[in-house]
Every structure is written in structure tokens, then in C-alpha cells.
Amino acid sequence: MSETTEHPPPADGPPAGPRTVAVIGAGTIGLGWTTLFLAHGLRVRVNSRRAGAEKAVTEALGTLAPGLPGGGHDPGELAARLEFEPDLERAVRDVDVVQENVPDDLELKQELFRRIGAAAPPGALLLSSTSRLLPDDMGARMDDPGRLLVGHPLNPPHVIPLVEVVGGRRTDPDAVEACVAFYRSVGKEPVVLRKPVPRFVANRLQAALLRESIHLVQEGVVTMAELDTVVTRSLGPRWAAVGPFQAFHLGGGEGGLRRWLGVAGPGMDRAWQDLGRPRMTPETIDRLGDLAERTYGTDTYAALAAARDARQNAVLEALARVGAGDARPGGDGTPDDSTDDEDGPRGGP
């Protein structure tokens, strides 16, 4: 892992005001970004090697546009600002921002950004949705890697506010400022990581919970549906209002986190030792896949995604009404999972 310069979160500033964004890749994450950017009045040019990319994007607008935060949008109105360009160099030639969403293959990303860096305008922001690679590594073949940053969204990117922003040793601080301003201009809550860490922050937290969830289901402690209920009826609502540290700070009563750790802390080492360590063998994957199909039925992806978006928007809207978009005074961000693939969802923890 390459070293990077620590980047403190920049102060709020006016949006940079880009008008045209190239979205590279039309998998799950690319489709979400495309829908969100169009909803914020941007012209979006999609470049994809995916077979039937135009059809996939058009269908995705019909599925995702009704679930956009703040109320649904007319897919037809969004499509009026949508373009398709199969040639990569032409796709990025005159854009303000590039949002890349191809598989997390370092060789692939290095060659892609070499070509993008040579063809895109000198002032264009070059952003990657990668869930694990670092800018210094992805930009190793670029003449000017200073404008390449990670902008890692959480799935679904058109709804979940968080974007993890990661710079590198060669990243221009002005590019970090511009990146944050751009994401804020489309309704996101960017958090600039102060240090590089494999898989960043949100996916590391998610991986820890997923590991124990799989262990508990495999051991027959609860079913998959019951595990979901435990989270959505306890930790989910709690963490939508306050993060883990503030939750335990409040759990300590008047003594706060110091008191809580003084009581519970000595036992945490033993508790961590008891956590499961399931192995992701082909047999485990098959069993979990069978369980998921039996648990969640035969509803189409579009129907399940629409129901998810409606519920997540309801939570975000309720928090906004009570002024709880950020539970930490003066803070700048919060909450879920992957990066993209030309043929659908991938990545995750």
C-alpha cells in the first residue's frame, strides 16, 4: 500500500459548478451515479463496455429515479441530458468530472487512468469509485496524477449520503477541495480520510458485522431473516441517529464513554475472542445464496431495490426533519458497501 499525505477535511465552500460528467462503467454503482447526477441537472455521458449498456441505463432510470432523495424524478426528463459514447477518449474529452466505476483490477485501472488523464481537460476532476485501491497506485502511469482521487460511494449511491474521499502523496490539495465541493453539490456527504487504509472505513465496519452475522446464521443461532430483524430493530435505528462512539458515550450515563469503558472495557478482549471466523468457501457461498433466495423470495431486483430506497429515504427524511443529519456537532458525515462492475454488483467488504 502506498503512503499518502494526510488530508484534513476541507472547510465548506461554494460548489465548483461542473456541468458535464463522464460516468465510466454501467454496473450497479455507475447506474446509481448516473441517475443522481442527472437529477442534479448535470449532463451525463456514459462510457461502458457492457453489452446493452444503453438499455441497462434507460431501464435503471425507470427503476431508480422514483426513489431519489427529496422525491422522485421523471425518468424521461432525466434522459434528456443523457449521452452515450463508446469511445473512452471521446467520452472524457470535454467534461468537468470523470466518475470511474470499473472492476477493482489495478492493471485495468492504471491503463484506464493513463488514457483518461491524457484525453480529459487539464482541469477535470478524475474520481474513482474503487472500494480498496489508492490514487497513487491507480495513477502510476499518468503524467498528471494530482487530480485523481477516490470517491467511494455506498450502495445505493443515489440514496446513501456518504462518499469516502481519499487522496494520495501526489494529490493536489485544491483537487481535494474541488472534489468535496462537487459531491456536496449533488447532495452527498463527503468524508476525507486522514490516512489510507485498505478498504477504507465504511466497508471495514460492514465487514466486521457481516462476519459475525454469517457466523451466527451458520451456527443456527438465528435465521437470516431473524438476523436482519435484530439489526433493523436495534442497531440500525440507533446508528441512524448516533454513531457507535456516541451511542456508548450515552450508554455510560453522566460518566460518558470513560465510565462505560471502565465497566465494560476489561471484558471486551474476551468478547472479541469469542467472535466467529467463518470461511468463505464455495460451500459456504452456496449455502448462504440458497438461504437468501428462500428468505427473500422471488421478487425482482427492481422491486426489492425500490422498497429499499423508499425505506432508506424515509429514514433520511425523518432525520432531516429533526435536524439530525449529523449527530456530532460540527461533524461532516455518516453511513453502507461496494464499488462497481460492468455486469452488476460486486465489491463490498
Score class of each variant (00 low, 15 high):
345 P>I: 00
16 A>F: 06
139 G>H: 10
309 D>F: 05
4 T>E: 12
253 G>C: 01
321 R>M: 07
320 A>C: 06
215 H>R: 13
88 L>Q: 11
142 M>L: 10
163 V>Y: 02
1 M>Y: 02
72 G>M: 05
203 N>P: 10
160 I>R: 01
204 R>Q: 03
7 H>W: 12
130 T>C: 02
257 L>G: 02
15 P>E: 10
6 E>M: 09
79 A>Q: 11
56 A>Y: 00
71 G>M: 07
122 P>L: 11
251 G>W: 00
16 A>W: 10
332 D>I: 12
258 R>V: 11
22 A>L: 02
195 K>V: 13
317 E>V: 08
99 Q>M: 11
188 K>V: 07
302 A>V: 09
15 P>S: 08
102 V>M: 08
18 P>A: 04
315 V>N: 04
76 G>N: 04
105 D>V: 15
334 T>H: 14
95 V>T: 07
84 F>K: 06
325 G>A: 07
182 F>I: 03
182 F>W: 04
290 D>N: 14
221 V>K: 13
313 N>S: 11
37 F>H: 14
282 P>N: 12
149 L>P: 01
18 P>Y: 03
119 A>R: 06
11 A>H: 12
115 R>F: 03
33 W>S: 01
258 R>N: 05
257 L>R: 01
7 H>A: 04
239 W>F: 15
187 G>S: 07
82 L>E: 07
126 L>C: 11
175 A>P: 02
53 A>S: 14
266 P>K: 05
33 W>Q: 01
131 S>G: 09
307 A>I: 09
153 P>I: 01
32 G>W: 00
118 A>V: 04
312 Q>E: 14
99 Q>R: 03
316 L>M: 14
179 C>I: 01
266 P>Y: 08
290 D>C: 08
40 H>V: 07
58 T>V: 10
284 T>W: 08
10 P>M: 08
347 G>Y: 00
164 E>R: 04
288 L>F: 15
26 A>W: 00
51 A>E: 15
248 F>M: 05
68 L>W: 03
318 A>W: 09
284 T>H: 10
24 I>E: 05
92 V>T: 09
29 I>E: 00
61 L>R: 14
37 F>K: 06
307 A>D: 15
124 A>E: 10
94 D>F: 10
136 D>F: 04
170 R>A: 13
196 P>I: 06
303 A>Q: 15
111 E>M: 12
73 H>T: 08
265 G>H: 03
29 I>Y: 00
186 V>T: 07
108 L>V: 05
347 G>E: 01
183 Y>H: 14
282 P>T: 12
154 L>V: 15
336 D>P: 00
119 A>C: 08
175 A>S: 12
109 K>Q: 06
